[in-house]
Design a protein around this nucleic acid. Structure first.
Length: 790
DNA sequence: GGACTCCGTATACC
DNA sequence: ACGGGTATACGGAGTCC
């Protein structure tokens, strides 16, 4: 246990910390099956630039001068949370008396720095963290799902309506317990009281649910309020209370109300799924049944029900509804087991509450760790540097076309390795915490991975994997932190040194690959796609090649095989498609295929890519022709050509900015306004283009997809034919001019013959100008058969 | 009116 | 595993001929 990384207090088993009054916190400590509570003192504090701002503040307080010469040279501590805020207002008033430009909030002039969350403050000053000495399964977790009934004629459930009610609840825990409260023949009061008593009796550390923050909890609490029930499930006997998260970034944060149950944590698996998909972008929707299916732990006999079937089911087959709810809690448990552990293990390091950690950015996690040590050593703290980073990752494309076989190698932890080996760290970090923590994390991650590989026990393996994954999240954020504008310890020059060193490593790697006779196709930041030399035919040849390449790179820099595939369709930087040895195709990049594209376009591009990769040009021609005909004859349903766009701003804001000339009109907002629904940011709009002529303005000729009438289709045929040709144009670079026109045309006098058509492979980018003329280079596309595969 | 550039917004990769 | 740099597409406005 490293004190800088895990905090300097070794106390184990803390499962929850909550503020208890103005100057105390309550700690809940688990020891085996029992949990005990105790109170502890804490002193609210903040960092201040100039102690004179607090001169004359009447309440009891301490001002300590800190070591070093950083911007925030004083730490101010108070006996209570209330006094601390009084002091902040005192400082603002003081400042406004002395300065012309007035400030309203403590964030305005950067006079002081504060973590406005009392639990973080306590953890920071005490050096304690949650869950020390525990593994994920030691945490006692309870899953919850309720079903509700809305009277006939109402599509949506609404707890405020007299006749809306909770009809049943299903519960489970991570010790194998399952329970349901069947509301048949029970009053809603009975159900809710039994639910509250069950939760109190089971006494979980965590309450989990899919959509629990948006639906289950608010619904339950509203019904309890109407019925006059005390839903006192807090560990101190209090009712859950909601609070608005202070969205630090402000503009685009999806503000949902959060709930706090005293002494416990509330985990919404829906939010876990959302953040999981934010980077992966592979999920079609976030419904529990779909995600469970996708991740492979849905039971074959899982009960499926749509919301509109629930009333019928409740009247005719209540047992099916109960089974449905039980399946829901089962899957919620599995989902949480899959997505929660990395946050759990991060909680053992970062001085933050379990729930808030999931919402915290990675920069804030690192900064909390740094600040904890600065508080302990009573050292002054810097303010963020102004400026910006001037370089980023290295990108290049050398060939377009269809090439293969492909090896994708990447430099393992490129930026962290560079930061460690070249000792790059923020200049303002006088205590050297940044470097220490990064080095420490890296070495314990390697340890965990080693142990994971050699472990025989699957549950031990899973624990170590979660552990190393949580280290990785932190490790990968250190570079980003250097260039983060709000980071107290940011250092743009250091960030630039890292990226420049990265360029050098990549340039070296590209050179070495070429030296061995490999053809480099595309490079992005830390990965290289290339065609290995002909002599490399088996996996062990590949491993040998990678070992040779690794040995030519600077110490501490290693490369690994990230993937291998039969062929690659190289289109543009960050845009390519791969044909795997399992014949699966994966497409990357928004320019080839974007979510905002019309459905028929996505289908068409998919077919084109498939045709080019497997060498079936005939198919491409046929798909083009059939789509061309379908569009011309109004045979596509509206879903195939409507566009889905997400509104980023309110329609009011849009109208205001259009009127003041700040922004152009766009189809999506015009449709939202015309359809007269109250649309809010984040809403999706489905629309299509009407009018005559391919060149119409979208914002003047758009209609909601709901208004499309299959009996009187009014979509703009020339416009959608133009769209089809625009999609086809993406493939121009892969074919000669004649071939291109032959493939992407409707049958003329002569029928299409695919025999003579060849797919071009051309030097791209800077190489294109170096190459003599435009002639094609010859590549063997000869998927190798791996000896160890089938 | 077409060709061109410039700009803001959106999406996606690492 | 949300932060920022890099890359690309697209619609619309302004400009020039």
């Amino acid at each position: 246990m490293d004190p800088l990384l895990h905090g300097h207090d070794p106390e184990t088993g803390i499962v929850a910390v909550q503020q208890a009054g103005d100057s105390r916190v309550k700690l809940y400590v688990r020891s085996g099956a029992s949990v005990s509570a105790r109170e502890a003192e804490f002193f609210p504090f903040f960092f201040l630039t100039d102690a004179s701002f607090l001169k004359g503040f009447p309440e009891r307080h301490w001002v300590g001068e800190l070591g070093g010469n950083n911007f925030y040279r004083y730490i101010c501590a108070f006996t209570g949370w209330h006094d601390m805020w009084e002091a902040i207002h005192f400082i603002i008033d003081n400042y406004n008396r002395q300065h012309e430009t007035k400030i309203e909030s403590y964030t305005d002039a950067g006079l002081l720095h504060i973590r406005a969350d009392p639990v973080s403050q306590f953890l920071m000053q005490s050096g304690k963290t949650l869950f020390k000495g525990m593994i994920f399964d030691d945490l006692y977790r309870l899953q919850l799902d309720i079903e509700t009934y809305s009277p006939k004629g109402f599509r949506f459930r609404n707890p405020n309506r007299q006749d809306d009610r909770v009809i049943l609840a299903a519960l489970s825990d991570n010790r194998g317990w399952r329970f349901d409260i069947n509301g048949k023949g029970k009053s809603e009061r009975d159900i809710l009281e039994e639910l509250a008593n069950t939760i109190k009796e089971k006494d979980p550390d965590v309450v989990e649910g899919h959509g629990i923050l948006n639906f289950d909890l608010p619904y339950i609490l509203k019904r309890c309020e109407i019925l006059g029930i005390d839903f006192a499930v807090g560990r101190d006997g209090t009712v859950p209370h909601s609070f608005d998260p202070r969205s630090a970034t402000g503009d685009r944060a999806p503000d949902y109300p959060l709930f706090e149950i005293a002494g416990r944590h509330v985990v919404d698996t829906l939010h876990l799924v959302q953040s999981y998909d934010a980077t992966k972008r592979t999920l079609d929707n976030y419904s529990l049944a779909y995600v469970a299916q996708y991740l492979g732990f849905a039971k074959p006999d899982r009960t499926h029900l749509t919301a509109d079937r629930i009333p019928w089911c409740w009247h005719n087959e209540p047992d099916t509804l109960i089974k449905y709810a039980v399946d829901n809690v089962d899957e919620t448990k599995r989902l949480s087991e899959y997505l929660s552990p990395s946050t759990f293990y991060l909680s053992q390091m970062v001085p933050s509450n379990y729930g808030s950690l999931a919402r915290l950015g990675s920069a804030a996690k690192i900064e909390s760790i740094l600040l904890r040590e600065y508080v302990r050593q009573k050292h002054s703290v810097p303010k963020p540097q102004a400026g910006s980073q001037s370089t980023g990752g290295y990108t290049a494309i050398f060939y377009t076309g269809v090439l293969g076989p492909i090896l994708h190698v990447d430099v393992e932890s490129l930026y962290p390795s560079i930061m460690i080996s070249e000792k790059i760290r923020p200049t303002s970090d006088g205590l050297g915490v940044f470097e220490h923590v990064l080095t420490q994390l890296t070495s314990i991650r390697i340890d965990a991975k080693k142990k994971m590989v050699s472990s025989e026990d699957p549950s031990e393996k899973a624990k170590l994997d979660a552990l190393q994954a949580s280290y990785k999240i932190l490790i990968n954020s250190f570079y980003g932190y250097l260039g983060y504008s709000q980071g107290l310890f940011n250092d743009y020059a250091a960030a630039d040194r890292v990226t420049r060193a990265g360029h050098k490593v990549l340039a070296r790697l590209i050179e070495e690959i070429s030296n061995t006779g490999g053809k480099v196709i595309e490079v992005d930041t830390d990965g290289v796609f290339f065609v290995p030399p002909n002599s490399v035919r088996t996996r062990s040849d590949e491993d040998d090649l990678v070992a040779i390449l690794s040995s030519t790179l600077p110490n501490g820099i290693r490369i690994t095989v990230d993937g291998r595939c039969k062929r690659m369709l190289s289109y543009k930087k960050k845009n390519y498609a791969l044909l795997g040895y399992d014949n699966k195709i994966s497409i990357k990049g928004s320019s080839l295929m974007s979510r905002s594209m019309e459905k028929f376009g996505r289908y068409f591009i998919n077919k084109c890519i498939e045709g080019l990769l497997i060498g079936n040009v005939d198919d491409i021609h046929r798909v083009y022709e059939s789509l061309h005909n379908s569009i011309s004859q109004h045979r596509l349903p509206v879903n195939d050509f409507a566009r889905a766009e997400t509104l980023k701003d309110s329609t009011e804001r849009y109208t205001k900015e259009v009127d003041s000339g700040k922004r152009n009109r766009t189809a999506s907002y015009e449709v939202a306004i015309a359809s007269n629904l109250h649309s809010k940011p984040g809403d999706k709009v489905f629309y299509y283009i009407t009018g005559t002529g391919a060149g119409v303005k979208g914002f003047e000729n758009c209609k909601s997809a709901d208004d499309w009438d299959p009996n009187f289709p009014d979509e703009n045929i020339p416009y959608y034919l133009k769209r089809l040709d625009e999609f086809a144009k993406k493939f121009e670079i892969f074919l000669s001019q004649e071939d291109f026109h032959a493939v992407f045309s409707v049958e003329g006098l002569f029928s299409f013959s695919p025999e003579s058509i060849r797919v071009l492979t051309l030097p791209a980018g800077e190489m294109a100008s170096e190459a003599t003329g435009d002639e094609e280079e010859k590549f063997d596309i000869d998927p190798k058969i791996w000896l160890d595969e089938g």
